[in-house]
Design a protein around this nucleic acid. Structure first.
Length: 638
RNA sequence: GGAGCCGUAGUUAAGUUGGUUAUAACGCCGGCCUGUCACGCCGGAGGCCGCGAGUUCGAGUCUCGUCGGCUCCGCCA
């Protein structure tokens, strides 16, 4: 380790203040047109190529890289001092732009036609050897990348995502502002609302024992802004949901949140399409075809098994329940639903691949995976077809239009499982068989969602979207009589199998809102306690209104072709919802807890020693003290 | 709450059936080098094999547990 950090520390004696030096250009913009001009660049040393006699440095900033040359022929001293330069040192250079010599042009670099001959330079800062190379082509574990996020963000691929993100946000602002939307901020410290995701809670010091909740979305506030006559509202806003993470889910995420007065579903959807089209135009210079395709929820479930179908490829599911309803094959006959997925050319799948796919569908609760291959001579190869009668086999062949070379997968059982298993299998096969055009952007609106879904655990209907979603015209009576049949004025925008936006027309009359709570089995008192402020607002002349919210991180992820929204969030959380850069969450001092009248009753894991050990000890002490207090009070039960 | 994958120099990986001193590339440090562009050449340093138990004469390798990262199920109006 000797000399490892010492050399670089030693170099600190060469540091110079910025003084009156000012950049004339960024590191990505000089071209042959600038030849001859005196420039001043600042940035980080990317690569050093020290030939002894001449030193090349690729100077990097957010915009790109420029080759700067330290040559003894230009200035003896400048060249001699440059020997100390190391990767990631921060420097400022002044010099003259000159064309590169014959045959030395680098076509892979935006600035490859020129170089800057340094006449004067300053070392602005040294740098430790970074834990990984600041370069796109090296793979680094996400662990390390997140710990040194500020270094990962220097890498062009990641940095580029934030340029895209900014462009998308600004395009959205310009579009919505142009349509008369007001950007209004809503509170982050707000009231906990039941229904929906788990809330993040924030204790109140001034009102001990009480808690704010961070908003899952500004839903109630934007509706009140409509009652307030704001007419059209939008906000690019952070939302918080304390649920488990996924590649496309973070506990804090950003929405483009919109609400409009005096509109019905069609106007909101038209506005939303225009917004997305504007973003794609400004960011990717892509012209989307409008209006976007539409599909009902029922059709999506029937043909794709999911409510966010990826329409970049075919492979539709087909309901074959009727064909096998009377079958001797009990697995099929007794099933609530039997569906098939015909894969043209899938006959080439190996036994191993089919076994893997069988394992795959088990994730969704499937017991197994039945299949039929149609061989070259038209005969079937199948582990289960022998249980089918002649007419059933003929029925399947006809219904599914089976052809030589196909494989057909079957799933039988509860409808929910069958759809989930085959719907996800379909996507898996699309990827496996290379059916997906990675450059395509396939949008589809999903409409006519059910208003409710049945919650097995709570044994009651819950709102599928949220409890302020308007039923479709004429469905008010259904809400009482057959809630599962009632449809909502709700719509999701789906892009390549990702839900990127969703919204609804809202209930704007007290009468309908009461009917909704009744259907949800939420009593009047409970409704008043939880949503009284909104119910009151609805009684002061609420206009018809509706809106939509876009998952901004997801949208940007797709614009960047990133695999996870973590790659478009500057400082994301890990799957365990921790921040590896800051080490949040952490224990807090006993004093902080005492001020909030909070006692930590259980510590799930022992606090480890380390940087936080002082705090941990502090808290442990505080807990002991508070426990004593608690006993004096006779405890709080709970 | 559950399932799977991963964890070996600074980094990325290899490491055979459990067997001598744990390899390689890049990076780092030193030297040489005037046209490179992931410069090149020579030399050098660098290891808690995530952590803890166990099996064994012997564990990077096998078993169990645990911690961390990722993917997914549940969950996410």
């Amino acid at each position: 380790m000797e000399g490892y950090g010492d050399t670089r520390k030693e170099h600190q004696k060469y540091l110079k203040p910025l003084g009156d030096w000012r950049r004339t250009h960024d590191c990505g913009s000089l071209t042959a047109e600038n030849v001859g001009s005196e420039v001043c660049l600042m940035g980080w040393a990317q690569f050093r190529r020290d030939h002894g006699g001449v030193i090349f440095i690729d100077l990097r900033d957010r915009e790109g890289m420029t080759q700067v040359v330290f040559s003894p022929e230009v200035d003896e001293q400048v060249h001699a001092e440059a020997h100390c330069l190391r990767t990631e040192y921060v420097l400022a250079i002044k010099g003259r732009v000159r064309p590169r010599p014959e045959g030395m042009v680098n076509p892979n670099m935006a600035t490859g036609a020129i170089e800057v001959a340094v006449t004067e330079w300053k070392l602005l800062n040294t740098a430790n050897t970074p834990p990984f190379m600041i370069e796109d082509r090296v793979d680094v574990s996400e662990n390390l990348r997140l710990q040194y996020r500020y270094l990962d963000l220097r890498r062009p691929r990641l940095a580029k995502n934030f340029v895209v993100r900014n462009r998308a946000a600004q395009a959205a602002r310009r579009y919505l502002d142009g349509l008369g939307f007001l950007e209004v901020e809503t509170p982050y410290l707000t009231k906990s609302t039941p229904e929906g995701a788990r809330d993040f809670l924030v204790p109140s010091r001034v009102n001990q024992g009480m808690f704010y909740a961070l908003p899952q979305s500004p839903q109630l506030f934007k509706q009140m802004l409509m009652v307030a006559g704001m007419d059209r509202y939008f906000q690019i806003v952070r939302c918080f949901r304390d649920e488990d993470l996924r590649a496309d889910r973070q506990p804090e995420f950003t929405q483009i949140d919109c609400e409009m007065s005096f509109v019905d579903q069609e106007q909101v959807m038209t506005m939303a399409e225009g917004l997305v089209a504007r973003i794609f135009k400004e960011v990717l210079d892509l012209d989307l075809t409008l209006p976007m395709a539409r599909m009902t929820f029922a059709e999506a479930m029937a043909s794709y098994g999911v409510d966010k179908p990826d329409l970049r490829f075919g492979l539709k599911l087909k309901d074959v329940s009727a064909v096998v309803r009377e079958s001797e094959f009990r697995v099929f006959a007794k099933a609530e639903l039997v569906k098939a997925l015909r894969v043209p050319g899938g006959g080439s799948l190996t036994r191993k691949e089919i076994d893997d796919l069988t394992e795959f569908v088990k994730i969704y609760g499937a017991q197994g995976l039945a299949w039929i291959k149609v061989k070259d001579d038209g005969s079937w190869q199948s582990p289960f077809a022998k249980f089918l009668s002649e007419s059933e086999r003929a029925g399947l062949a006809e219904t599914l239009a089976m052809e030589v070379g196909d494989i057909v997968f079957f799933q039988a059982g509860p409808a929910e499982m069958v759809n989930a298993a085959l719907g996800n299998l379909r996507v898996k096969l699309g990827e496996m068989l290379g059916l997906i055009d990675e450059d395509a952007y396939n949008f589809v609106w999903i409409t006519d969602f059910p208003l409710f879904e049945y919650d097995q655990e709570e044994k009651r209907h819950v709102a599928r979207h949220h409890p302020f979603t308007s039923p479709q015209d004429g469905h008010l009576e259904l809400m009482r009589a057959a809630p599962e049949k009632a449809l909502a004025k709700a719509y999701d925008m789906v892009l390549n199998g990702n839900e990127v936006g969703g919204g609804s027309v809202r209930i704007h009359t007290k009468e309908v809102q009461d009917a909704m709570f009744a259907a949800l089995n939420i009593g009047e008192e409970e409704a008043r306690e939880k949503f009284g402020f909104l119910l009151d607002a609805l009684e002061y002349g609420a206009p018809p209104h509706g809106g939509i919210a876009f998952g901004f991180d997801r949208l940007v992820m797709l614009l960047c072709k990133a695999k996870s929204i973590r790659d478009v969030i500057a400082f994301p959380k890990t799957q365990k919802a921790t921040c590896l850069t800051t080490q949040a969450p952490n224990v807090v001092s006993a004093r902080q807890l005492r001020e909030l009248a909070i006692r930590v009753r259980e510590t799930a894991k022992p606090q480890t020693a380390g940087p936080a050990s002082d705090q941990a000890a502090d808290q442990a002490a505080g807990q002991a003290a508070d426990r004593a207090d608690g006993q004096a009070d006779g405890g709080d039960g709970a």
